Amino acid sequence: MSLYEILGTLETGFIFGIVALGAYLTFQILDFPDLTVEGSFPLGAAVAATLIVAAGWNPWLATLAGGVAGFAAGFATAMLNVRFKILHILAGILLSISLYSINLRIMSGPNKPLLMVDTVFTSFEGLGLPGYIINPIFLGIMVLVIKLLLDAFLATGWGISMRAAGANPAMAEANGVNVGNMKLYGVGAANALTAIAGALFAQIFGAADAYMGIGVIIVGLASVIVGMSILPSRTIFLATLACLFGAVLYRLAVALALNADFLGFQASDVQLVTALLVAIALIAQQTGSFRTILRKGGRK
């Protein structure tokens, strides 16, 4: 792989690191299997792209608006589960399906190009460095800030209540925690992060597309599973760091697999490669941690 390809992989890895943090919040903290992200990722992209192109919004505000839309989508999913007792997985599927149509309406079509308009990355063009270098640096700093903010939130009273609601809902309820509200705001926050990642993804690749959310849930889960298998931790700080590490490692693994000619993979096989990596990670979790496997390999 060339330096350009490696930096491009890091760029994408950092964006999906934000998705991984959202997946960590729902799957690990709240124990809420959420499939809404398949729709909230393109929702954030659609809202941001439409506001930038059609309404002339500042790209930073448009990206934030995409996150707000993602929060609303996640909140609606949790509402279906908490208030109307619809199974969480089914609630996520229902929202994801409905968001496909909503995204088409927002963009007035299947996609919205971001050509000849300012994006959040335009702000760094005057620094004298090419985009393929400055963009990964900016995204790395941004995802680190989001990680630290999430760590700080989960250390607050509200965050500890959210962790308790996911770990033991009955005990949390007995201690005065409103488990339903924790789900509403937690799933909303997770989808806000996913939508922000979608908005950034659209701006860096030049278009928002209604189909860009396909497989995002697997990417998020792969990042969490791989990262926490290699860097198992009992602390929030290291757990979220492991998620980010897993996202970057996952993207590097996909890029290496697609660039390995002897494997015979093509660019269109990215979803197949993703599924294989997740399957390997899950199998490794059942038979022993990645760290143990790596140690055994090293002794050979």
Rank of each mutant, 00 (worst) to 15 (best):
P113D: 07
V53D: 12
P42C: 00
F124W: 07
A46N: 02
L90H: 06
A65H: 11
L114K: 04
A73R: 01
V37K: 10
S40Y: 12
T77N: 15
P59C: 01
L51N: 06
S123C: 00
G56F: 00
A45L: 06
G56C: 01
T36W: 12
T77L: 14
A69V: 04
L127S: 04
S123H: 08
M107Y: 05
A62C: 11
M79C: 13
L87V: 09
N81L: 02
L99A: 05
H88G: 03
L30N: 05
V82F: 10
F27L: 13
P110C: 00
A20N: 13
E38Y: 03
W57K: 02
T26P: 13
I18L: 15
D118E: 14
F71Q: 12
G39P: 08
L25V: 06
E125N: 07
S123L: 13
L94N: 08
F41R: 02
N103E: 08
N81R: 12
D31T: 12
I102Y: 14
G39R: 00
N81V: 03
L99S: 01
L35P: 12
I89S: 11
T26K: 04
L115E: 13
K112P: 10
V82C: 12
E125Q: 07
A72N: 05
P110A: 02
G92R: 05
L99P: 03
S96F: 07
T122F: 03
A76D: 02
G66A: 09
A65V: 01
L95A: 05
G66M: 07
G39F: 02
L95T: 13
R83H: 14
P113S: 03
N103F: 02
M116P: 00
K85I: 05
K85V: 13
P33T: 01
A55N: 02
G56P: 08
I15H: 10
L95V: 15
F41Y: 14
H88V: 15
L35T: 05
L61P: 08
A73F: 08
S40F: 08
